[in-house]
Amino acid sequence: MVALTSGVVSVARTLDRCTVLGPGVRAVVWVQGCPLRCHGCVAAETLPFEGGTARPVAELADWLAGLGPVEGVTLSGGEPFSQPEALAALLDAVRERRPEFTAMAYSGFRHEALRRGTAGQRALLDRLDLLVDGPYVASRHAPLRWRGSANQRVIALTGRYEDLLAGPDTSAGLEVSLAADGTLSWAGVPPVPDFRDRLDAQLAARGFALRRADPAHPEAPGSPPGPGDPDGPARPGYADPAGTGAGDPGAPGDPAGRPREARHDSTHDDKDEVRGEP
């Protein structure tokens, strides 16, 4: 087993109860930082590696283990596989107290690419029950269950949810909540494209302004959660979400990598190219 040494997760936001980002009632952890730049990403505030809140693994594990009637956690972002060691350690710590606690994660990289990733990334993958893989491709937006574009897949990595995946592949919708302090937040995968722009326009037409979060203060009022269709590296600095085995344009060992823009080439069907942008 790989040694899991990282004890801190950079977190953009958490939610203790959600029914639209995975099966059943789940907690959600949106991590801070993503090295890709998918056109149409609905949570640009989670992309910079700067900012976020440093949360000790032990603290997050206590929170998850004490939530009560939730069946698992969904890891979103941001890119969970940019912080794999800490997240793998988090799942281990929770399952010491709640062995049946399930785990689902999103990644902008294909399952095949993650299997060729770092030891930490493979360790996180081995602890998941479900994976949603692939970058969000705006030109292929579709109202699908737990994902935003037709190139993305829901992959059962254990037998826990195989029967569930045989059901209708339709959007799970969004959940909107209003906190006592007036903070409006939403969770889920938007069933329509350009959701953030449409939401801002509709609110503005009614005299409201939705304040975008500052990455340095991710839990400020008005900060929406991360998307259900984030993106990220197969390994630090490695931009190959389609699992093509293309060369590594980034700097190995750099946990932040370099920003990439995901672009879809329609001649490649479900293979989505990611070309490095300096």
Rank of each mutant, 00 (worst) to 15 (best):
276 G>M: 13
258 R>M: 08
98 R>H: 10
264 H>C: 04
171 S>H: 03
62 D>G: 11
161 Y>P: 06
228 G>T: 00
219 E>M: 14
196 R>W: 06
273 E>S: 12
18 C>F: 01
192 V>W: 06
167 G>A: 15
163 D>R: 15
76 S>L: 13
61 A>H: 05
264 H>T: 04
8 V>H: 08
207 G>Q: 14
182 G>V: 09
10 S>M: 09
56 P>R: 09
23 P>S: 07
197 D>R: 13
34 C>M: 10
229 D>P: 00
51 G>C: 02
164 L>F: 15
165 L>C: 15
45 E>I: 02
48 P>Q: 08
76 S>V: 01
264 H>Y: 14
209 A>R: 15
176 V>L: 14
229 D>G: 11
124 L>P: 03
256 A>N: 06
81 F>W: 12
235 R>Y: 02
216 A>S: 14
200 D>N: 08
191 P>M: 11
117 G>M: 07
6 S>N: 13
11 V>T: 02
162 E>I: 15
148 G>A: 08
140 R>E: 12
37 R>S: 11
190 P>L: 07
169 D>Q: 11
230 P>C: 06
171 S>C: 10
277 E>A: 14
218 P>R: 05
167 G>S: 12
156 A>R: 03
152 Q>L: 08
111 H>G: 00
216 A>H: 13
18 C>D: 02
34 C>A: 05
154 V>L: 13
134 G>L: 07
73 V>Y: 04
8 V>L: 10
38 C>D: 09
231 D>V: 05
11 V>F: 02
148 G>S: 00
213 A>C: 10
85 E>V: 05
267 T>M: 05
132 V>K: 00
260 R>I: 11
187 A>F: 04
139 S>M: 13
114 L>P: 00
190 P>G: 07
10 S>F: 01
24 G>T: 07
84 P>I: 07
59 E>T: 14
96 E>K: 10
123 A>G: 04
63 W>M: 06
188 G>S: 10
96 E>L: 13
245 G>D: 08
241 P>F: 07
88 A>H: 00
105 A>V: 10
81 F>I: 04
120 G>P: 06
212 R>P: 05
119 A>V: 08
41 C>A: 12
172 A>T: 07
102 T>H: 01
199 L>T: 02
204 A>M: 06
37 R>M: 08
235 R>H: 05
91 L>W: 02
171 S>I: 10
13 R>M: 11
271 K>R: 15
47 L>W: 01
75 L>M: 03
37 R>G: 03
235 R>L: 04
133 D>P: 05
81 F>L: 15
131 L>S: 02
69 P>D: 13
106 Y>W: 13
234 A>N: 03
99 P>A: 06
28 V>N: 05
151 N>F: 04
217 H>G: 11
219 E>I: 01
147 R>M: 12
88 A>V: 12
57 V>F: 07
271 K>C: 08
254 D>C: 09
48 P>H: 11
141 H>S: 04
69 P>K: 08
210 L>D: 00
89 A>G: 15
233 P>K: 03
246 A>E: 09
93 A>Q: 11
177 S>G: 07
